[in-house]
Write a protein that binds this DNA or RNA. Structure first.
Lengths: 205, 205
DNA sequence: CCGCTTTTTTACCATTTGGTAAAGTCACGA
DNA sequence: TCGTGACTTTACCAAATGGTAAAAAAGCGG
């Protein structure tokens, strides 16, 4: 009927959509949804504004696309925490993966933070259907470890929240940390050591 | 010469400025600087836009006024952590005060978070002259406690950052927590218990 | 109640913003 | 190489946005 929605996007399609999304990630993660403008995104992408609207139906479309992509990579580190291994090592591995994501994908972290700060208007469904079930599942996993005496007694929900808070903080509050801890190179190493020590102490029975 | 800058603001002045700042706090904390509009602020304040510009010279003036106010109350809990008492209790008290601020002033927390997320363009001076010296001082205080063996060895800077991260998270990511932990009433209590237990374990020698 | 100051409203304005129409230009298979 | 569909540009537009000028309305001390 309307748009046959091409089965295979052309090389140009792929390339330009990627450039737009990358530019939009810069812009949205810095200014939030309302604070970002299509002109900014267009300039950062090196394309004209109407050209951007050739690839996406509108500002919201770009933002939603970014959020959809984000959720995939965002949940993955937590998903990989499983019942298989030693509980303490599973949790510490999760913390390491999460901190690494803050270092490698700070823009994604800030995009997420912005969206939540603004009340998650465009992400409530994702939270409900994507994050919540995973969160509940992992809470039960941790609760199992606790009741089996394999880690120290701890509130599973607040434990996960503390892990999120401490790891994401290094990405989201980078501008503040740049003032307080100017030596950024050594920072990631000492941050990892600190978090590892802190959660190891908390979780060791 | 220009404006004699009234020595005593009238009752109406005080009242309306307060209403404007309160409305602006709502708006800026939710949408960030660029995402907030004067019309929104005006409507929330119940005043006309030109009337708002009678009390403040512009959008930025309102924002800067809010940030100035914020820094005063924001640094106070950390300032109150002193060398007098028992180190562990001083730190745990600080954590309690900080968590209480997240509960009582979530808008202020989000205003701060928004500003930092956006690269702290209007707050870099405050960070440098207000926060940084205080941070360094308290790091030294903690380092002294560590080397005296009065608390467990810990990186003072990362300790403070972890306290900020975990406590502020409950205000800044409230929209996410509302989905994951719907029972908000009991949440603050269990959050405090969790944080207290966590940092007590970390800091006990 | 008067006159003067403070406060508020009305009517604007230039710029920015998200978005569209339509005319071009490009790329690539026949 | 030429036609056709994919891509890009130019020229717009209506609404929103930050801000201003000046008239109107309140306050208020005397």
């Amino acid at each position: 009927m309307d748009q046959p929605r091409q089965k295979s996007p052309s090389r140009i399609q792929r390339q330009n959509r990627k450039r737009i999304l990358d530019a939009a990630l810069d812009t949205f993660s810095q200014h939030g949804y309302r604070g970002a403008t299509l002109d900014q995104i267009a300039e950062a992408a090196g394309l004209s504004k109407p050209n951007i609207l050739y690839y996406f139906t509108g500002k919201e479309d770009i933002h939603v696309t970014l959020l959809n992509r984000l959720m995939l990579t965002w949940l993955e580190p937590l998903e990989r925490m499983e019942a298989d291994g030693e509980p303490l090592e599973e949790l510490l591995d999760y913390i390491r993966r999460k901190l690494k994501m803050s270092r490698d994908f700070p823009r994604e972290s800030r995009l997420f933070a912005n969206e939540i700060l603004q009340g998650a208007p465009r992400m409530a469904p994702h939270l409900e259907t994507g994050l919540k079930p995973l969160f509940d599942r992992k809470c039960q996993l941790i609760a199992g470890w606790v009741s089996a005496g394999r880690i120290a007694p701890v509130d599973p929900g607040h434990l996960i929240v503390s892990i999120w808070a401490t790891t994401q903080h290094y990405a989201d509050f980078e501008a503040q940390l740049a003032v307080l801890m100017p030596d950024r190179d050594a920072q990631w190493q000492s941050a990892q050591a600190h978090l590892e020590a802190m959660f190891r102490k908390l979780l060791t029975p």
